[in-house]
Design a protein around this nucleic acid. Structure first.
Lengths: 355, 355
DNA sequence: CTGAAAGCGCTTACAG
DNA sequence: CTGAAAGCGCTTACAG
C-alpha cells in the first residue's frame, strides 16, 4: 500500500482516461452541469462553477472531441484536399483558407492526394463519413467515377472546388478559379506578339483535366494566329520539375526546335529553364519560357519568370467563405463557378526570338 | 401525394442520413448483423450477407466514421503537424510518412502551424481530444509552455518528433533527425577550407529552436578555426525567402562585407542568391552561398546550390514506423532521438573567395 | 450464425 | 440553476 501522505500533491490522471463523469463525481455535480460549464459557463452558478473548475484542474480533464462531434453531428473541421503538401502554390491558397476558417471558428485538416487523381467517390466518402463538415477540393479529380458527387449536385455535399478545372458533370458545384483558358490565351498571345511562331506547350498529366483549359487556351491562341500546332510540340510534363526537364529535352531534341515553351505551371517552368540552360542554350535569347501560377520562386529564378499570376490568397478566402456559407446556411449555397482575375506578369524569361 | 409508381426505381437516401438501423430494418436483420457484415463479412451467413448487401446498396449506406472511431476509441488517423504546406522540404518527408502509414492501415491528417511555434499544450490537446491516434511533429515548438508534453514524457502521448530540434524538456521524446550541429559544422568547415574567413550566417527565427543547432555548428566551426564571429554577421532570415533577401541586403551593406553566407535552410539560400545577384554581385565569385536541406530546387537554381542533404524520405519513414510501433505496442515505444545520416552536397554556389 | 442489450462520452430538451 | 434521462451510431461480449 502506498502511504497517501507520500503521494504528490496533485495526482493528475493521464489525459484521455478521465471523462466527464469523473469530473462530475469529484465536483459533486451532475454530468449535465459539467457539460454546461464547458459549453456555456454563464449558465452555471458562480459557486458551482468554482467547484467544477477545480475538478477539471485536478483531473486534467479535456473533453473527448470525438464524442462531442459525434453527439453534435458537427465537427467544425474542414477537409482541404490538395495534390501535394510540398507545392509552393498552395502557400497562398492555404493562407486565404486559413484566415477565413479561423475567423469563423473552423479548423482545417489537410489531405494529400499525391498527384493521384481522386475519384469523386473517395471524396464523397469523406463527407459522408462525417470526419469533416465540408470539403475544399484543390486537387484534380479523375474524370471517371464521379457518380456519387454528381448524384448530389443538388447540393447535399458541402464541397467547394478551388483552382482546378473539373469534369463537366461537376460544373454545377460551386467553385472559385481564374479563367484558365483566357489566361493561357493571353500568355500565348504575348509570345506571338513577341514574334514567336514555334511555341511548344508542356501540359500536366494525360489523365487529368487540371491543365486542359490552359492547353485549350494555348491552342485557341495559336489557331487565331493561323498557326497549326504541331503535336510533337505538345508534351506531358506531369506537373513536376523532373517531368518538365525530360519534356524540355525532348522538345530541344527536335530538328526544328521551338523558340518558346509555355509551361502549364511554374514548377514545370523552373525545370524547363534549367533544362534549356543545361543544354547550353540561353533563356530567353535562344528559348523563351513562360510559366503559370506565379509562385514565389518565379520572381527570384534566373531569368525572372514571365508567368500568369493567380490570386491564390483571394481564391482561398472565397472558396472558404462559400463553403462555410453553405454549411451554415443549410443547402442554399450558390452554385456554379466564380471567376477571379488573373494577370500576365511580364518578367525576363521571354523575349523576341533571335532568329 | 406523389404517386409511388412514378418514383425512380432506386430511391437512394441522401448519404449521412441513413444509419445502420435503416439498413437492418430493410434487410430484416439486427443492427449487430449489419455491423458484423461491415467489419467481418465472413461471420455472416451467405444468404444473410446478400440481403444486407442489397440493403446497403439500396440505401447508399456508409458507416459514420465518427461513431465508429468514438466507439472503438481509435481513429486510425495520424496527425502530421508541419509549419507550412507550401514548403518543398516536406514533399519528401510526407512521402516517407505516407508510404508507411498507408502500408500499416493509417490515414493522415495534416495540420499547419503557419510558422507559429506551437505550444506543446496545443499539441497535447490534439491527442487528448482523440482526433487522431498519434502525432508526428515536424513543426517547431515554442520553447515555453511544454508542461503538458513534458508531464507525459513517460510516454503516454503517442508522439514522434521529426526533423526539428526541440527544447531540452522534450529530449526524452522519440525523434528522428540528422545531427544538425555536425552538418552545419561540416558546411562551415567546407567554406573555411575554400579560404573564406568572413562567413555570415542567416538563421531562422529568433524565438525558435529550429535552426539553433545549425547556428551552433557554424559557431563551433568558426571557433575551431580561431575566427571570432562578428555578431553583425549573424542575422535573422525568418526561414522565408523574403526574410533572407532582407537579411542579405543588410549583410551586403556592411563596409566589410562577408565573402560567404551560410543560410540555415535552402528556402533562405534561394532568396540570398537572388539578393546577391540583384546587388550586382556574382555567386560564387563575389559571394559564396551555402544552404541546408537540399530541396528539389537546390540543384536547378543558378548557380546550383551547395547544401546539406537531409534524407527527408527516410526521416518520414522512420518517424512513422516509430510512431505506429508505439501506438500499436502500447506504451513501450523506444525513447530518445535516432540520428540519420546527412551529406554535404557540393555544387556550384560556393568557391574560393576572389580576394 | 444471429439477436438483445449494454455502453462508449457527450449534449440537450424536459422537469423541477 | 440543476439533475435525471434519452439518445447520437456504432461495437461487442453474452446468450441462444
Amino acid at each position: 500500500m502506498v502511504n497517501p501522505t507520500t503521494m504528490p500533491e496533485q495526482v493528475r490522471e493521464p489525459p484521455g482516461s478521465v471523462s466527464i463523469k469523473d469530473v462530475a463525481r469529484i465536483a459533486g455535480v451532475s454530468i449535465a452541469t459539467v457539460s454546461r460549464f464547458i459549453n456555456d459557463p454563464e449558465r452555471v452558478k458562480e459557486q458551482t462553477r468554482t467547484r467544477v473548475q477545480a475538478a477539471i484542474a485536478q483531473t486534467g480533464y479535456s473533453p473527448n472531441t470525438l464524442a462531442q462531434s459525434f453527439r453534435r453531428g458537427k465537427t467544425h473541421l474542414i477537409m482541404v484536399v490538395l495534390p501535394s503538401v510540398g507545392d509552393p502554390f498552395f502557400t497562398g491558397v492555404m493562407s486565404g483558407i486559413r484566415s477565413v476558417a479561423g475567423g469563423r471558428g473552423y479548423s482545417l485538416l489537410i489531405n494529400e492526394t499525391q498527384f493521384n487523381t481522386m475519384t469523386a467517390d473517395e471524396i464523397g466518402a469523406m463527407v459522408v463519413s462525417r470526419q469533416a463538415d465540408g470539403i475544399v477540393l484543390l486537387a484534380s479529380l479523375s474524370p471517371f467515377g464521379n457518380e456519387v458527387l454528381s448524384a448530389h449536385s443538388h447540393r447535399t455535399l458541402p464541397i467547394v472546388i478551388g483552382c482546378e478545372t473539373v469534369s463537366p458533370e461537376l460544373a454545377n458545384f460551386p467553385g472559385v478559379h481564374i479563367d484558365n483558358s483566357a489566361a493561357a490565351q493571353e500568355a500565348t498571345d504575348y509570345l506571338l506578339a513577341l514574334g514567336h511562331r514555334k511555341i511548344a506547350f508542356i501540359y500536366g498529366q494525360q489523365q487529368s483535366l487540371l491543365t486542359s483549359d490552359r492547353e485549350q487556351g494555348y491552342r485557341a491562341s495559336m489557331h487565331k494566329a493561323g498557326i497549326s500546332v504541331r503535336e510533337s510540340w505538345v508534351v506531358e510534363g506531369k506537373l513536376t520539375m523532373e517531368g518538365a526537364i525530360a519534356a524540355t529535352r525532348i522538345l530541344l531534341g527536335h530538328a526544328d526546335r521551338p523558340t518558346a515553351i509555355f509551361c502549364a505551371n511554374d514548377e514545370m517552368a523552373l525545370g524547363c529553364i534549367y533544362a534549356v540552360k543545361s543544354a547550353g542554350l540561353r533563356v530567353p535569347e535562344d528559348v523563351s519560357v513562360v510559366g503559370f501560377d506565379d509562385i514565389r520562386y518565379a520572381r527570384i529564378c534566373d531569368p525572372a519568370l514571365t508567368t500568369v499570376y493567380q490570386p491564390a490568397e483571394e481564391i482561398g478566402e472565397k472558396v472558404m467563405n462559400r463553403l462555410l456559407d453553405e454549411i451554415e446556411g443549410g443547402r442554399s449555397g450558390s452554385a456554379g463557378a466564380e471567376i477571379v482575375a488573373h494577370k500576365l506578369v511580364v518578367r525576363k524569361s521571354a523575349a523576341p526570338p533571335s532568329v
